[in-house]
């Protein structure tokens, strides 16, 4: 499922969980792939959920970001809702050339966040993708900014295709997360827990057939 990059050392100071949400076809997966592999490729629609891991250094800290990529179609919403849990950062993506993906942020996606996110301090960021298609633009930068303000989100416009602002999205989000003490605490306990987990036989399998519940 997930793939990692730059995990050679395996050691990091902080670990954060980030979630990508938004309508189908706005470019969530493209944004992620553009960030992870520095490449731009055409992707098939995401089914269910996928995740990728990226290690990077931001603000002098070695970070491990686990980025969850979700399907945008409504059918998958009941299945993706559990991924909001324990996320320190949520990126709400829309397509600047399709207005309905923008209006759905207020109509659908911010509501989903309120409903399912268990982390009141969680950092949210609004991202308008596909700014390379400037002639087809349907949502202005100002509109994006004011919606972000309204919902207490950070804001950026980017292009997964040209990679403009792609790294900034994730880096700025990570920086902001590190400014929040409760999230910083979560990020470091995740590291400790992970070290414990690597010891063998730490987790005997639970008895009984009812797994995964």
């Amino acid at each position: 499922m997930g793939s990692s990059s730059g995990q050679s050392s395996g050691s990091y100071d902080l670990s954060f969980k980030i979630l990508l949400i938004g309508d189908s076809g706005v470019g969530k997966s493209s944004l992620l792939v553009s960030f992870i592999s520095n490449s731009v490729e055409d992707l098939a629609p995401t089914i269910g959920v996928d995740f990728k891991i990226k290690q990077l250094t931001v603000g002098g800290k070695r970070l491990k970001l686990t980025i969850w990529d979700t399907a945008g179609q409504e059918r998958f919403r009941t299945l993706t809702s559990s991924y909001y849990r324990n996320a320190q950062g949520i990126i709400l993506v829309y397509d600047v050339t399709r207005r309905e993906t923008f209006t759905n942020l207020s109509d659908v996606w911010t509501k989903e966040v309120d409903l399912y996110s268990t982390n009141p301090d969680c950092v949210k960021m609004l991202v308008g993708n596909k700014v390379d298609k400037d002639s087809e633009r349907d949502v202005t930068r100002d509109e994006g900014m004011s919606l972000a303000k309204e919902h207490g989100c950070m804001f950026l416009e980017c292009s997964a295709k040209t990679r403009q602002n792609v790294e900034q999205c994730f880096e700025e989000l990570a920086l902001k997360i590190m400014e929040v003490p409760s999230l910083l605490e979560e990020g470091s306990t995740a590291v400790k827990r992970n070290i414990l987990k690597q010891k063998p036989d730490q987790h005997p399998p639970s008895s009984g057939g009812g797994c995964c519940s």
Binding site: M1, G2, I47, G48, V49, D50, L79, T80, S82, Y83, R85, K197, C211, C212, S213
Partner: peptide, 13 residues
């Protein structure tokens, strides 16, 4: 390694 019900949901894929 992936916590919670990920296996569950991941296998959907």
């Amino acid at each position: 390694t992936t916590k919670q019900t990920v296996l569950h949901k991941g296998l959907l894929q």
